[in-house]
Design a protein around this nucleic acid. Structure first.
Length: 512
RNA sequence: GGGGGUGUAGCUCAACUGGUAGAGCAACAGACUUUUAAUCUGUAGGUCGUGGGUUCGAGUCCCACCGCCCCCUCCA
């Protein structure tokens, strides 16, 4: 009996083979294997002049296909590099052939033998020695792929159920090489970011995930409790305030790639924990940050996808810089037909209602939230190609410096692609007195019932009082960028282990 | 939170207007010493998400609950 579900007859059969192997003195769970070549390397070794006398290799991997023929058998193993065919022959293997008969799909095995080419033309390892590395007791939900006459592969069966794919990502990855490739691309993108900032003198740092006071974004946090301090701690919702403390400390250029946690709804673009890149650069303003993004992102896209122009979701995205910069106010005026400088809140609410939004929900909106909503309703979806929206209203941006030409605005921009916010950046507010006033405004909104408004962070203000140089900073949602690069419609498809409800136990599956 | 869909064998899916569950692949036994979704013969495998109700009879109808997916709302 396993802990998760009842053992099936298929598993019983595998356990019987496991027992038979043990009976024969074969350890079904070996300690190590001296692999000489990956599957791809072994394939590359063979040249036709070698005939049946190719080089000897020792390959190892998971058995993914097996075609028994009495006294011979063909199968494929798959390793991280790809797959290679194996040929087992009783004449050659002698008693070991009994071990081959006890193999199941999904077993990990090591095979030593010479490389040759079969009559049908496939480069193959003729097994001279077979080592069981790990018996598989539970069959993977593996589909069968047939290549039709016109060359299109058709897969029968396989692991389709999205829930199972997320819950048992190990199985999903094991049977879907393309999913493994997707996560390799994700890793490649993150590694590129790291190299990019390292090469420009940025210091990678780690700031607290457990915080007694959370800040840096408008969001509800996860709360936990520290026993010996007997106090609540919050999981961070952003890295921002700590990274800027480091600018005060003199690092000048810092970045962090890590998880933020927001206790909010889950859907195809929101996971409770997600990956954020933040960077801060002394003596820079938000225009410098735009230039950095216009440099970084195109390079990253080209590095990961091979081109500055990519076809995704039926749209051609062109990352060739420079990207359009549209002012927030002008964008709203153009798409919503309202002038935020003159419109009353009631007029804005009426505009939202006219667009089909729920009247009661709209009534609860005011101030920055209302303006933000108007922007989201009318502007966001129009921003398909990479676009900077710049100069946000002050009310929306309590951590951004006031605009040098217009004190009702801030020097803030967001980068949109495919109608989604990818990055958010500003000339960082470094006037401690102004920061205190902005926090106080937030506290007032909080008192008025806005759970997402910032808390007043005295320690952060103290840091600013010591003096923070002019600083440009940015946060970028890594998951969403990866979604675009890999053409995935759900954030769960780019997170290895997305948040899931716990699996119901057998006993109480239907109760409560 | 609202609306729609869905949950049947290990996997992928069937089962007409209610009549007591079926296929392909996987599994098991046997045949086959260069095959490749191998093939051939035979066998086995299911409290039809859970609980209740209607009915002579429920996978199928009704109610509740649980999970998942999609759309709307929303935070990145």
């Amino acid at each position: 009996m396993t802990s998760t579900d009842a053992r099936t007859y298929v598993e019983e059969a595998r356990r019987e083979k496991l027992a038979a192997l043990t009976e024969m003195g074969v350890n079904p769970f070996a300690y190590r294997y001296e692999r000489t070549h990956t599957a791809a390397e072994a394939l590359g070794l063979y040249a036709d002049a070698m005939g049946d006398n190719g080089p000897e290799v020792a390959v190892a991997g998971r058995l993914v296909s097996m075609r028994g023929k009495g006294k011979t058998a063909f199968g494929h193993i798959e390793d991280a590099s790809g797959s290679i065919q194996l040929y087992f022959k009783q004449d050659t293997l002698g008693g070991t052939y009994d071990v081959v008969k006890l193999l199941d799909l999904d077993d990990h095995i090591g095979v030593r033998g010479r490389v040759f080419r079969t009559r049908t033309g496939e480069i193959t390892v003729q097994a001279a020695e077979v080592t069981v590395l790990a018996k598989s007791l539970r069959p993977l939900p593996r589909g069968k792929t047939q290549v039709t006459e016109d060359g299109t592969p058709v897969t029968y069966g396989g692991l389709q159920d999205p829930e199972t794919r997320y819950r048992q990502r190990y199985a999903d990855l094991a049977v879907h090489p393309d999913i493994r490739d997707l996560f390799r691309l994700r890793a490649r993108a993150i590694a590129f970011m790291r190299r990019y900032f390292d090469a420009r003198g940025f210091l990678e740092v780690e700031t607290p995930i457990l915080q007694s006071l959370y800040g840096g974004a408008a969001a509800r946090p996860f709360v936990t409790h520290h026993h010996s301090l007997d106090m609540p701690l919050y999981l961070r919702i952003a890295d921002e305030l700590y990274l800027k403390r480091l600018i005060v400390g003199g690092f000048e250029r810092v970045y962090e790639i890590g998880h933020d946690f927001r206790n909010e709804g889950m859907d195809r673009t929101h996971n409770p924990e997600f990956t954020m890149l933040e960077y801060y650069q002394a003596y820079a303003d938000y225009r410098d940050v735009m230039e950095t993004l216009e440099d970084l992102i195109p390079q990253l896209v080209e590095h990961c996808c091979g081109s500055l122009t990519i076809e995704r979701f039926g749209i051609t995205f062109d990352f060739t810089p420079p990207w359009p910069r549209v002012r927030f106010m002008e964008a709203v005026e153009e798409h919503a037909g309202v002038d935020l400088r003159t419109a009353t809140e009631d007029e804005l609410r009426e505009r939202l209602r006219a667009a089909g939004q729920d009247a009661e929900t709209v009534l609860e909106l005011s101030g920055g939230k209302l303006i933000d909503e108007v922007f989201k309703e009318f502007v966001e979806s129009t921003l398909v190609q990479p676009t900077f929206v710049i100069d946000y209203p002050k009310a929306l941006s309590p951590l951004a410096k006031l605009h040098r030409d217009d004190p009702s605005l801030t020097e803030r921009f967001e980068l949109f692609v495919q109608g989604r916010e990818i990055a958010n950046a500003f000339s960082e507010l470094n006037d401690p007195d102004d920061q205190r006033r902005r926090f106080e405004d937030q506290m007032a909104q909080r008192a008025a019932g806005d759970e997402e408004a910032h808390q007043l962070d005295e320690d952060y203000i103290r840091a600013l009082e010591y003096g923070m140089p002019p600083t440009g900073g940015m946060g970028l949602g890594v998951d969403r960028l990866v979604m675009l690069l890999t053409e995935q419609g759900s954030i769960r498809d780019v997170i290895l282990f997305p948040a899931m409800r716990p699996e119901p136990k057998e006993d109480d599956r239907a109760t409560s």
